[in-house]
Computed example of a mutant assay.
Amino acid sequence: MNKPAKQNQITIKINGKDNSFYEDSAEKEIIDIEAGEEAETAATIENQLESFDWNLPEEQNEGNDGHFSLSKKNTSPVIFSASDKRKRKATIIKAPLIAVVCAILLGTCFGYAVLKMVTSTDRKAVPVAAPAVESRPVAAAPEVVLPSINSFMVQGGVFSSEQAARKVQEKLTDSSVPVEVLRLDNRFYIFLGMADSLEKAKSLAGYYKLKKVDAFWKEITVSGKGTGSEDDKKVLGDMLALYQELAKNSAALLLGTEAKAEVKTAAAKINSLKPKANSAHAKELNDMRGNLKASADLIEKYQSSSESTMLELSQEQLLFFLKNYQALLSKE
């Protein structure tokens, strides 16, 4: 019995269908696909080229039956479609566009941050002006009337004109008698000294009569319309108290009686008197303070030298004090 001729078989999968082809070893006859099926298959392949599954053949060793077949190498087919092409094309376009947008955003953020830093630095460097505060004038301290002074005087004469009084003053000065002219009630008085009472003033007038000087006793009031601050008023009050003390001591020593007050204590009080530098009466107050200090110093010199001239000069400084005080009260 003759053996069938050995044939080679080739299997191709088209559209999910297996198609086998045989080649006869003797006649090498090729089995073709029918014309209608071939035309249909070609049309299908052309229309669905993008979705065609390419299954690469894997060569197999010839088996016992001498057939070769193509089989899948991977379970997942590789598909290339038109939508994939459009996606790849869009990706190619989007990539540089995204990079440009990101660069713009980063540049904008960086520029804003730098601008913020610069503006904040400028604000710190420029000082902000404080709001204007409406200035209100400070109310001046109210003025007070300065106190008047009462004194018991030794009078050397009274005149209707200042010129006549000045002539007598010159004569008494040449006789080494303390003297000062004061205007009271439109009259000009010549005063030689003072005491702490009218009785003491009368006794002191007798002292000057012994020197052949006409002398009388009189109580006077030195007053005026002068005003000043509360500080001025206080300083004047302290000065008037020291004036009365020095007049009492100097008169007592001239009359031969012992002074009761300690002169050094009075001098210490005078040194503590310090008128305000901004006072409107600073000059007058300082001059009066100087008169009190000179009177106290002369009394102290008398205590060490026993010269009565020191006491007369001490009284003269008190007369100067009254003259300055009268000028202060007359000041407007």
Rank of each mutant, 00 (worst) to 15 (best):
N19C: 03
S135H: 07
A90G: 01
N150A: 11
D18A: 05
A261S: 15
L70K: 03
K85V: 08
G63L: 13
I30N: 01
A266S: 11
I92E: 07
T221F: 05
L172T: 11
D287N: 00
V181N: 09
G226S: 03
K225C: 01
F80L: 09
K283S: 02
E170D: 13
V133L: 14
A95T: 11
E307L: 06
I149H: 13
E34K: 01
A282S: 02
S71N: 00
K17Y: 02
V235K: 03
K167V: 15
D174W: 04
L329Q: 04
S308Y: 14
N64S: 11
F110M: 03
V263S: 14
Q317W: 04
M153F: 08
K3P: 09
D24N: 13
G206R: 10
L319P: 01
K209V: 09
D65W: 11
L328Q: 08
K3W: 09
G224H: 00
K218G: 03
A280P: 00
E29S: 02
I92D: 04
T257N: 13
S160L: 06
A201N: 15
A141N: 07
Q303P: 00
V138S: 07
Q48K: 11
V133A: 15
Q9E: 01
A113L: 12
G256Y: 12
F110W: 00
K13M: 03
